[in-house]
Design a protein around this nucleic acid. Structure first.
Lengths: 137, 137
DNA sequence: TTACCGATTACGAATTTCGTAACTCGGCTT
DNA sequence: AAGCCGAGTTACGAAATTCGTAATCGGTAA
């Protein structure tokens, strides 16, 4: 995992369809090298998979969740990641413990998720932020 | 957004490098049709981007940014989205105005980003949270 | 120096993507 | 009904990309 790997990953994260030839030109190496390295990164599991980010709903939001101190946040995260419309579940440092990133059809669907989180016994509080605009890096 | 679109999306979610020809064979249509539909889905914004899911020793973090009231957050977001290691820039409701989601090599790279944000004239304050664990929904 | 090994490069072949024109098939008009 | 339109689909040659593989390079140990 050197600087070249990181530059390749950076390009692929922005657009995973970028041809090896174009990546090679951008980072100053050959197509074969890019190909070898990407293959190695996949083998090593650094690249988990090539995928697409979709926006099927109209509304994205972050739901920040605080859980009781004696609770295993892994279990709660696991559970919440199964909920509909949930894109990511992050365990974070800071005031709150878990952040849900959700992509829902409307405010009602977001509210359902908040309600469901609040109804969970281990959840102490939630704080929701609507994502008003998203820009890709 | 019909059943064919959804099947194509499912395949791409699983492996975004699947050739159109292979998708076409799997869903029982032609390469051109898959190409047209994927292009349309991208245009419509249903497919936000082609990307990679990485499972690295990398450090992910949220950097929450508050900007001065008289500042156009669009401009600031635009600028920050160009910074290296920045995955998303969200304009959000709530106490802070902008959230950067970053995926950097180490704490130093994260710190560089925080520093850069704080050095920006329009930025009033920042609050950083490390993402300790990420789960896909 | 020499041998060796992994990484890189080079290059022709196979595959995929791309541009575009023809075709199909409802729905609509006359 | 006949004719027409338009979106979606299909067909196909050309361009671009990926792939397989062999040669080359660069560093290192003996």
């Amino acid at each position: 995992m050197d600087e070249l790997d990181r530059r390749i990953l950076d390009i692929l994260r922005r657009d995973a369809r970028t041809p090896n030839t174009e990546i090679a030109a951008e980072v100053g190496t050959s197509e074969g090298t890019v190909r070898n390295r990407v293959e190695r990164l996949v083998d090593e599991g650094v690249i988990e998979r090539f995928t697409i980010a979709t926006r099927t709903g109209n509304l994205k939001a972050m739901i920040e969740v605080t859980v009781a101190v004696d609770v295993d946040t892994n279990d709660v995260s696991e559970l919440m990641s199964e909920w509909k419309d949930v894109d990511f579940v992050w365990q974070v440092s800071g005031e709150e413990d878990i952040v849900l990133v959700v992509d829902a059809a409307d405010t009602r669907a977001v509210n359902d998720l908040i309600t469901r989180a609040r109804e969970h016994d281990d959840v102490k509080s939630t704080k929701t932020r609507l994502i008003l605009d998203e820009r890709l890096g």
